[in-house]
């Protein structure tokens, strides 16, 4: 950590009521994090990957049908199943609540991929290639990962680090919601979301906009979910992984007709 004077615990809230499934977050992530271009070959080999993906579910049957969208990214679980199974400590939990992946250590056993219930860890089967004209647009703050390692969403740790340097280390101010979004220190997907369905913040900051959702979900874990005041829930709560991403339920104004 560049500056230990402030403690952080990063978290995200995804409001499914606002998500339109536009995939802007996917593209933003792809550009920000030097993710290789998913070519036709990669798709045919079933090796194309994204760090954040939009899951699309159909509800009902045509014509009485609705599409549901859910952005799924690394949940940065507090109790992550992927962490204890890495033999080389390539993935571990850092002090800021992030589940980090150390590319240099990774040997590519792929156990973490198998042990991730959210299926957000991706293996680099080939060495990444970009057309020559695009090499200059690679993000210099992000490593270009070699083949043979596992990678995943980092909550754009490079942006967080920049914020910690520019705001906290240089100016001595704590990062808060305002400075994070003002300085573009929030993850690329959050920044790119046109409907503001994704919110990013610091759970150690009592004024953070996302904190009430976390407090509510933490106060009514597991079977208390019906007592919650907000629409918040976590993915696969029975897995006991305690993710740092909270989803807000969709409000169905026009529910499907009954009888289906």
């Amino acid at each position: 950590m560049p500056n230990a004077q402030f403690e952080h615990k990063w978290g995200m809230v995804a409001d499914l009521d606002k998500c339109t499934g536009c995939q802007a977050c996917v593209i933003a992530c792809q550009a920000e994090n030097n993710i290789p271009i998913n070519t036709k070959d990669y798709f045919l080999q079933r090796r194309a990957y994204e760090w954040i993906r939009i899951e699309r579910y159909w509800e009902g049957e045509y014509p009485n049908v609705k599409a549901r969208f859910m952005p799924v990214l690394c949940q940065h679980c507090e109790n992550a199943p992927c962490e204890p199974v890495c033999p080389v400590f390539a993935t571990y939990h850092n002090e800021e609540g992030l589940n980090v992946q150390v590319y240099n250590r990774c040997v590519g056993t792929r156990y973490c991929i198998n042990n991730c219930p959210y299926q957000v860890r991706m293996f680099n089967f080939w060495h990444p290639n970009w057309p020559a004209r695009m090499e200059n647009q690679l993000n210099p703050d992000v490593t270009v990962r070699s083949r043979g390692i596992t990678e995943k969403c980092t909550f754009c740790v490079q942006r967080i680090r920049r914020g910690e340097l520019q705001v906290e280390a240089r100016d001595g101010n704590r990062l808060n919601d305002e400075t994070i979004s003002g300085g573009n220190y929030d993850p690329a997907c959050v920044q790119a979301c046109p409907t503001n369905a994704l919110m990013f913040g610091d759970l150690q900051d009592s004024n953070a906009a996302i904190k009430p959702y976390f407090d509510d979900v933490n106060a009514h874990p597991g079977h208390g979910e019906h007592d919650r005041e907000t629409r918040g829930y976590r993915l696969l709560e029975e897995m006991n992984t305690r993710p740092s991403v909270i989803y807000l339920k969709k409000i169905d104004k026009y529910p499907l007709e009954a009888g289906h």
Partner: peptide, 13 residues
């Protein structure tokens, strides 16, 4: 690299 095998993003073992 392991690209020459039949493994893919679902079946990694």
């Amino acid at each position: 690299g392991l690209g020459i095998t039949g493994l893919n993003y679902k079946v990694v073992w």
